[in-house]
């Protein structure tokens, strides 16, 4: 179909402005991470006076970044694995069975998504303190506490999206597995999971991103040992000085893994969203 000239002009202008809006901060992040400290403390310059890779070396010693990185990695990976396994299990039940409480479960899980974290941060904090007192295991402040918390954050969306994916897999395939003597779990593992692999990958990257970026609970529920990147990055600002070039370098380093993962898998996220939207 032919497009009028006015539309083409609008498209070029509109997309250029949007690109500048999106890329502006990314450019500042990358260029400032290559500047010497003097450059980021004075008036802003578009081009570094000299290009230096020192910030990328210094970030690891100014702040114990490697430890925060390790904490974030362990917590996010564990939360992702648990969330994906729980979501697969729940989504399979919802997609393949009709049972009492099915819609009640869906509504309960989805509605937890609408409430702000601040609503249950405080009671959860107190409950974790209590569990610690009762069992002697210091749950509050531990990595485990964050794993438990974070896995529930991505669970509703993960279940919702996997139900969409599972529904699109023909039941005849399950039937065939049954004829071959597989039970329900066998059918899930042998037939449904392989067909839903892209959806599972998308759900996994979503869960990982959710955990990797979480700030509110990390600010209250971590201590010096379990601190994650979200809180650790603030330590480049001291009372007297902000190492902006190092802040930018560290932001870049912690962003790369999730951005790459997300961009590789975003196609499947879009598919999942479409499946959900069409229903």
């Amino acid at each position: 179909m032919r497009e009028p000239v006015s539309f083409r002009v609008l498209r070029v202008v509109g997309l250029t402005l949007l690109t500048l809006f999106v890329l502006g901060p990314i450019y500042v992040m990358v260029s400032s991470s290559l500047k010497p400290l003097g450059d980021v403390q004075g008036k802003f310059t578009w081009i570094p006076s000299t290009i230096t890779f020192d910030p990328f070396i210094d970030i690891w010693s100014t702040v114990p970044l490697a430890r925060y990185f390790g904490n974030s990695l362990v917590i996010s990976l564990l939360a992702t694995v648990c969330s994906v396994v729980l979501a697969i299990s729940a989504a399979y039940a919802i997609s393949r069975y009709r049972f009492h409480g099915r819609s009640a479960f869906r509504i309960t899980v989805l509605s937890t998504q609408m409430f702000p974290g601040i609503l249950f941060l405080l009671p959860l904090y107190l409950i974790f303190v209590n569990i610690g007192q009762l069992t002697g295991f210091a749950l509050q402040g531990s990595r485990l506490a964050l794993v438990i918390t974070y896995l529930t954050f991505s669970l509703p969306f993960a279940i919702w999206m996997l139900v969409g994916y599972f529904d699109s897999i023909p039941r005849e395939l399950d039937e065939a597995a049954h004829v071959d003597g597989a039970g329900p779990i066998g059918a899930l593992v042998r037939v449904v999971l392989p067909s839903a692999a892209p959806g599972i990958a998308a759900v996994a990257i979503y869960s990982f991103m959710t955990a990797w970026g979480e700030t509110l609970f990390a600010s209250v529920m971590t201590n010096q040992d379990s601190r994650t990147l979200a809180i650790g990055l603030r330590e480049y600002s001291t009372q007297t000085n902000v190492y902006w070039n190092e802040v930018m370098a560290a932001s870049l380093v912690v962003s790369v893994p999730v951005v790459v993962g997300f961009l590789l898998l975003q196609r499947y996220l879009v598919q999942g969203l479409t499946a959900g939207a069409v229903k």
């Binding site: 949007l18 690109t19 999106v22 890329l23 901060p25 990314i26 500042v28 992040m29 991103m209 990797w212 970026g213 700030t215 990147l229 979200a230 990055l233 802040v247 930018m248 932001s251 870049l252 912690v254 962003s255 999730v258 951005v259 997300f262 961009l263 975003q266």
Partner: peptide, 17 residues
């Protein structure tokens, strides 16, 4: 793909910039 980058960045990294 480019337009999705701000959403993909960890929130603290994007906002601190």
């Amino acid at each position: 793909t480019l337009f999705l980058v701000p959403y993909a960045l960890p929130v603290y990294a994007g906002v601190i910039v």
